[in-house]
Write a protein that binds this DNA or RNA. Structure first.
Lengths: 194, 194, 194, 194
DNA sequence: CATGAATGAGAATTCATTCAT
DNA sequence: TATGAATGAATTCTCATTCAT
């Protein structure tokens, strides 16, 4: 039954994740989540104190996991340019595989608490790129530039180019070949300015 | 009477635009729109078959107006680089002034039909940049590149860097100085790759 | 339609009053009230911002009206003893006729705001008797005694003897003859202690 | 095992009593009771067919115990006046100490069956006073009066003056000095009418 | 044409009760 | 027997939409 408990919690999270990814936060009503998880509405509240808490957990976990992946990947590369490329490439590949925080960038939450969590998440995510940019500028690999603006532009660029077309609402056939590499080139050129 | 009808229709659109711009689609309930327009809720339904239709029209008009502005502005410049810079600069400036389609890029609609309209709108908007890129590549000003991907990256970059900080949830005072120009530089560098 | 509005508001209040009187606050669900008033649940919210507000209004109005009646009646009598007798008699008679604040004394609210309103109401109601007792003691009609305790005892005495048997949950046949006068005698004797 | 069963049953009753006394019937959810008793919710249903049955038993036992105490105490006194005083004093003292059926008189049950049990309980409780009054009248200690009405008034008087200020919602510190004795005087004066 | 009161489906949440383990 | 996860009906409240006036 220990197992059962964990299973259900995961099932709820999985169901909610899927619904949010497919139809935004508004598609993830408690009733819909419970149905998708094969449970009753009341069961949701055994595992989460409120709908908001469930959504916040989805968001927070998705972001923190993605941040961990990016940090690990950038740590491996030597030059800042390689780090930047690796980061964009990693996020892009994972986005195409549908296992990242895509919806955290696009879906607008209905709830102030969730919105707050998303803002924090976006900042945490942006910080990865800011750190990377700072380092590159210090090393002389990148020209001086506003780290905040550049980080926002990078995140926006690959969000728009990757997440939007990849979102389940749009048709997934149109995946342009080498899409990820093209975005990598765009971002690197923008940052290096050479 | 004819005039009266048109006036009311415009009043409704104006009120709805304002509400969406200020508080996202969530803030634009039929009741709130009617109140802001100085009309009854029932009156809304004389001019629009549904709330969705009203929101779709807001979105569509906003996008087409913005596209018109961009087309006009890019037509004036000579080089493709100048066109690109002018387009980004124009949208950016207008976004900071709060009188453009900013919200169309961020606020998640409450309705699938509105969401569909937003996707179409983003594509129309992206087309301006695609045309511009095609021209620049043909002229030899820009290196060969995937026009679709670059256009998406550009739109994403300045959406993220401009619209997001401009969104109702964040404080509008904190605007970084020369924000627009920094975004222009980012985009131009990315496209020219030099 | 002005009329219609007022009618419905009154209808809701009347329906709610009846339900509370018959089955306590728990019997007055929004759904039950709306059904009893011949309206939809949503209609309730046109007239009252929340269920609590409706219940508070019922309570407040009942108490303040009852207090007004008592104040008027006690003002007419000369001696404090007559005032006391008149007050008890008035409340008792009105309770037997079913048009007083009976439920304010017995039904426990489910809601903190309503509970707060009831406490205030009971205090206002008790104040009528405290004033009357103070006057009687000053005049030498009543012996010195704790006004607070005596007032509570009086209110409790006739609540228990009148409201409880009169409550719609019990059978209304058992009305003892001269019930009200017997309670009057009890209270007067207790206060005069002679 | 026999013992174990009985223990659990008592534990449940004790836990439920405490919760009701502290926070009214609303605070005594099955889950809260089971938690307080150190058992599972399911276990409750092994010992009681329903939540109502548990609450009814609490009420019934509390009343019958209180009635026993009162009968014993009144049996000890000689004069009916002393009996009356002793009864009021006993209940009052115990109420202030918080270990009696106080809540049975004030907290509105969530359930019609419990409400019915409470009415019966109040009647049983009132019978103690009725017997006492009959005796006093027969002995010539009390003037002729309606025993039913007087008993109800007495119970109401000290319920209102004692239990209400003792109720969980009010602060228990504010107990008026000699409160119990003042109520005793009130009741005795009312009954003796001299 | 315009009004806005009324509707009613749907949302989040609670809790007595059941039942597989 | 005991457990406690799961159920599902009930509750309060919202809001797009309709329709009598």
């Amino acid at each position: 039954m220990e197992q059962r408990l964990k299973d259900n919690r995961e099932r709820i999270l999985k169901a909610a994740r899927k619904l949010v990814a497919q139809g935004g936060f508004r598609a993830a009503s408690v009733s819909a989540v419970s149905k998708a998880a094969g449970l009753s509405t009341g069961a949701i509240y055994r595992y989460f104190p409120s709908k908001s808490a469930l959504m916040v957990e989805i968001l927070t976990h998705a972001v923190s996991h993605e941040v961990d992946v990016l940090r690990e990947i950038t740590a491996r590369a030597d030059s800042s340019t390689d780090k930047l490329a690796a980061a964009v490439r990693s996020f892009g590949t994972r986005a195409l595989e549908g296992r990242n925080l895509a919806y955290a960038f696009i879906a607008e939450p209905t709830d102030p608490e969730v919105e707050a969590a998303r803002i924090v998440g976006r900042e945490d995510f942006g910080d990865v790129f800011k750190d990377l940019l700072h380092e590159g500028i210090d090393r002389g690999e990148f020209p001086a530039q506003s780290v905040d603006v550049t980080a926002a532009c990078i995140v926006g660029a690959f969000t728009e180019a990757l997440v939007r077309p990849v979102a389940p609402t749009t048709l997934p056939e149109a995946a342009e070949p080498d899409l990820v590499e093209k975005i990598v080139v765009f971002c690197v050129a923008a940052v290096r300015r050479a």
